[in-house]
Design a protein around this nucleic acid. Structure first.
Lengths: 241, 241
DNA sequence: CGCCTAGTTGAGGTAAGTCAATTCACGTGG
DNA sequence: CCACGTGAATTGACTTACCTCAACTAGGCG
């Protein structure tokens, strides 16, 4: 259980006691799998369960009336799925597995019960939620104020940073199951423009995204080009002894 | 103290006991004021205090290297300022008062101590943070997938909804101290385009924004035009007895 | 073999940006 | 009292980044 991704993530924030670890363990009751492409959570559903992603990639998104969609974030192992839906008692977004995924289901009552038993767990979850929000905010800045090439570069760097933290990537690159259509919906661009921008970045010798793999051809120069500052993702050590 | 805006907001989520209310009261130790335009929190600062906004408007934003800025959200009374900065031990954004504001300062240690005493308070704050995140997400969708006119309409409706909840607006309209420059930085547009879009909405008989006041000329039609769905902001009653 | 999905590229259209000039309200000092 | 400066709003002319439509390629799989 020491490799359990949520423990690793929360452990970076609070030094968890044995008692707290066992409370978290008891949250992982029901293990489930979902196939790529079939939504776990639908926009508008109420009283939903939350999940902890154990393996695979997912994305959370919103659909507009005219059928367009905006992907808000991608989730990788250790991330919560649908935590906000549970707390707000209504899902304001949908969640779709990008690949086949494994999750454990967490019931609201169990989660709130765990908070009552160990308040430090509540603090740790609040920290994790803040970190997620910081990523959404960075994404917002991306879309609002960076042009397509900077935006794409920044996004690929951020994803690399997150994956590196969980041992799934490095400054050399990482495996990435996203299609250009998914990228387009995440970046607020059209799929054809994503293609052009990827070509541009490749020809500039910055990054190459091909056959499900991202390769950083020049990490330093890309970082500068995309104005990327990873401090908000960096975690120095447990902040709460 | 019954009118204290944070109590009112959290009270919508959990039915607070006398003991919990007094814990919250004790958080409001130091009252401070800040003048419009002078930042409270700077991007990159560490170990910052958090604040609860008592009166006035503020905005949180990020500056890019080329000097452009993106406003992430506006804060109105009852909202936290810099809560994320405190939990992440590093501010990833700046906060500027839009008008002169009154706040109460909250120290991290006091907040975490309050969580330990009353876990339900932690849950309530997590709920408030989730609600904030939901607004950021909606803003992200705005910028990513709506054209300038829809975006502006949606934004003005959302602001109206939030203000109505705290008694500062209605379906007729509300007072709004934002300039077209602030709007531009929030919507990811240029100031001149904001001006054109406002004219367009006014001439279409949907909304009028003039002299610091927003008037909904046709609330229904604007709601439809902007694809606005307020459910994620609505609060039916205490969810946690 | 043929279909389907993902990716690639070209040609032409459009929403929004930039630059620039003008107005207006307001405050301040001569 | 008026000249002046400053910040916000307004409008026009021109540019550009990104979109749409459309055609074509390449791999995977029944």
């Amino acid at each position: 259980m020491k490799n359990e991704p949520l423990l690793r993530k929360l452990g970076a924030f609070v030094a968890l006691s044995e008692a707290e670890i066992s409370v978290i363990d008891r949250l992982h009751k029901r293990r489930r799998t979902f196939v790529a492409g079939r939504d776990l959570v639908h926009q508008g559903q109420s009283d939903q369960a939350a999940y902890i992603l154990m393996s695979g990639w997912a994305c959370s998104y919103k659909i507009l009336q005219d059928g367009q969609r905006q992907i808000v974030d991608f989730q990788i192992p250790g991330d919560f799925l649908g935590l906000r839906s549970v707390l707000l008692h209504m899902s304001d977004h949908s969640i779709e597995p990008v690949t086949d995924i494994e999750v454990t289901e967490v019931h609201v009552s169990d989660l709130l019960g765990a908070f009552a038993q160990t308040p430090r767990l509540a603090t740790a979850v609040l920290w994790a939620a803040s970190r997620d929000e910081a990523m959404v905010v960075e994404h917002l800045v991306d879309i609002g104020r960076r042009d397509a090439a900077e935006r794409m570069g920044h996004f690929l760097l951020e994803l690399g940073s997150r994956l590196t933290l969980v041992g799934m990537g490095s400054k050399a690159g990482y495996d990435c199951p996203l299609t250009q259509y998914l990228l387009a919906d995440a970046m607020g661009l059209s799929a054809v423009h994503v293609n052009r921008v990827l070509r541009q970045l490749r020809e500039a010798g910055l990054v190459t995204f091909r056959d499900g793999h991202v390769t950083f051809d020049n990490y330093e120069r890309l970082t500068e080009f995309a104005d990327f500052d990873p401090t908000y993702l960096d975690q120095i050590g447990p902040l709460l002894a």
